[in-house]
Design a protein around this nucleic acid. Structure first.
Lengths: 234, 234
DNA sequence: TTCATTTAAACTATAATGTACTAAAATATC
DNA sequence: GATATTTTAGTACATTATAGTTTAAATGAA
């Protein structure tokens, strides 16, 4: 640790506030949803906003996001990845503040409903998201682009489904994210060809009489494959 | 503009310094290079470091990076993209400081040699990059990963070559970035199949007797294709 | 000059994969 | 048994990947 006087040039630096905002995706009955909340304090009291917070002195940016997510949803250990920094000088009319946006994927049935309501948060279908404060709508658009890109190259879609899911469910998720209709036979063929799904001896009968077999994603196997250069592409 | 008192909660926030560091890639005679410099002031005086700066109150993060790049290389209008934020609480032992790293691709023959030397900066081949301050070596590793990923999906490799380049040159660039040997016939075929290169009536004879035709990348055409959903994959 | 050499460039054949579509069997519910 | 959805099988066709062969252009050595 160097002597503090070495850091004098640091201390003279301008004060720029550092925040993080979370674009929280959920998937419910074929529809992609986003969690936003109505602000209860100024500035922007009463307006819709992404959930977020200033970054505290004793936490990293992802830690701040995890804190916010726990607070609003009661969930821990969820998928979280940095989107990008928003730093335009006049993005926040009240203060010089940059926000490092992160996007999160949650299993929508797991969250704590009380916790969510307690904070005035609400799920909106993607197309129904209202006007949000500052540049938050831009953040959502950017996050969606990223989600589309990422889901085709990494198996992160599973983060939006229950641990046990059916192939038709996964397909409908991909169709919702990419706004397309996929061929069910080819989707199944390609997906199973990776040999990364573990077929269970259970069926989900909520959407059909016949019922569809439940699967689990084999994370361990995927990790090993990825290390040896395997490329997931859906 | 809201009344300032609305922003009181902003003002009470902790002071976290915001910096940006630039991972500057160049390509010279088949070798991928990085620009780093020897710090001339404390903290870390005399140590090797990425070029960077604190972000000023009246500039965005990319603006700060562009300022630094202009200062060190004399270049404007160069490819610059955000890598990610580095925000570990103890990443800088002297102050709480986050850095939003950006990577830049420059045409290595264009930079201002005087400007570079003036600031104590130096090009290192990728494998010869020395130990740098803080987490800067990690930033480089991350930037390289990103560059590999990005060059296969977006035509940004051209940013590292002169405006006029040959196909063998481009191939050697891709080989340097991805550390592989590519099949020259297939590389050429795939590349030309996009119909995005404009063949010139000139040859570059610096590397062979026969000489290879020079090409220019058709940015305008690419922009249009991209908008209509075209996907570049090399 | 002729010829061997080198790199670039074009052309070609075959295998592998992706895509679209047809058919039908399986499984539960009513 | 009628019905709806899931699941398997298979096939025709287009596209792409991979690799073999050939031609072309320039150069320097014999």
């Amino acid at each position: 640790m160097k002597a503090l006087e070495n850091y004098l040039p640091y201390i003279e630096q301008p004060k720029i506030l550092v925040a993080t905002d979370c674009i929280v995706f959920g998937f419910d009955e074929g529809i992609l949803k986003l969690l936003v909340f109505r602000r209860r304090i100024d500035p922007f009291k009463g307006e819709w906003s992404l959930i977020g917070s200033f970054v505290n002195e004793e936490e990293s940016v992802p830690d701040a996001a995890r804190r916010v997510l726990l607070q609003f949803t009661g969930l821990e250990n969820i998928f979280l990845e940095e989107l990008k920094a928003y730093s335009d000088v006049d993005r926040d009319s009240g203060a010089r503040c940059i926000s490092i946006a992160q996007y999160a994927l949650i299993r929508i049935n797991d969250y704590d409903r009380e916790q969510v309501e307690l904070h005035g948060a609400k799920w909106f279908a993607l197309e129904d998201v209202p006007h949000l404060v500052l540049d938050h709508n831009t953040m959502i658009a950017d996050a969606l682009d990223r989600l589309r890109q990422k889901t085709t190259h990494k198996p992160i879609g599973f983060e939006l489904l229950p641990e046990k899911f059916t192939i038709p469910q996964l397909q409908s998720l991909y169709e919702a994210i990419h706004q397309t209709k996929l061929d069910d036979r080819n989707f199944r063929k390609k997906l199973l060809s990776f040999d990364l799904l573990i077929k269970l001896n259970e069926k989900d009968k909520s959407t059909s009489k016949k019922g569809a077999f439940l699967y689990r994603f084999d994370y361990d196997k995927y990790k090993k494959l990825e290390e040896s250069g395997f490329n997931f592409v859906l």
